[in-house]
Write a protein that binds this DNA or RNA. Structure first.
Lengths: 123, 123
DNA sequence: AGCCCCGGTTACTTCAACGGTATCGGCGCT
DNA sequence: AGCGCCGATACCGTTGAAGTAACCGGGGCT
């Protein structure tokens, strides 16, 4: 068992939504970050990703499974238990996420400043 | 003047549309690649990006200008001339595009293979 | 009986991105 | 006069991702 996920891992105030790049669908990158440290259950993923409705999360997970980025393992227990785990292929995306994060830390403020100054022009 | 752009720089058969990441809007990454070697005119950009309608291209360019990724310079000549050039900020995205391309060359075939095998399951 | 848990699904709606076609203004060329 | 060039813009339609809200089944607990 790995440590619990921080509910504020993806602060709504985090400007990641303004990042000029994306891995897969809107939430794919965050799912990878959540699974980086080990397999997680559906409900466990919903904690840091509480902004994502179950429908969208399950769509995202099924798309990632289809693309071989993660595996879905259902255990025939009660209550039901399903675990999602990154595949080696999924893990190859982690360096890209790291690069994206590093870019954001360095350059995103410039981009946002440019955007704001254009908003001022328009007003 | 830089060398003319290859009309097949973005082959429609190129699986870039299946890439699991994106920089900005759909065409932002390709615009950066087009401007990497120097400023380009609107019509010049339309050659390799002939799959993009002028409307969408101009939207993309204006969004990038707003975000400080490129500059738009209009010369008061006849016929009109407008040049787009990457800013230093825009150039900082090039290493990310390189990383994305390297990932695709190495791993995209695996992803596409996984996707195809799932299609087989569904059929 | 009634409620909770887990891991979703279903139906409906909203919204922005994307795309297609047509058109514009100013000038020069023939 | 008519056409073409350049760099767009206007109008409209399509698409697909995302969001909202409600619900499901099977078992266990009280």
């Amino acid at each position: 068992m790995t440590a619990p996920l921080d509910p504020d891992m993806f602060d709504p105030l985090c400007p990641s939504s303004a990042m000029p790049f994306r891995v897969g669908d809107k939430w794919t990158g965050m799912v990878i970050r959540c699974l980086e440290s080990g397999p997680r259950r559906f409900t466990e993923l919903r904690v840091p990703l509480r902004a994502v409705t179950p429908k969208v999360l399950s769509e995202t997970l099924r798309a990632m499974e289809r693309d071989g980025l993660l595996t879905r393992t259902a255990y025939d227990e009660n209550p039901p238990r399903v675990e999602y785990a990154l595949t080696p292929l999924g893990r190859t995306l982690i360096p890209l996420l790291d690069a994206a994060r590093a870019w954001s830390e360095t350059h995103l403020p410039h981009l946002l400043a440019a955007r704001r100054s254009h908003e001022r022009d328009a007003s």
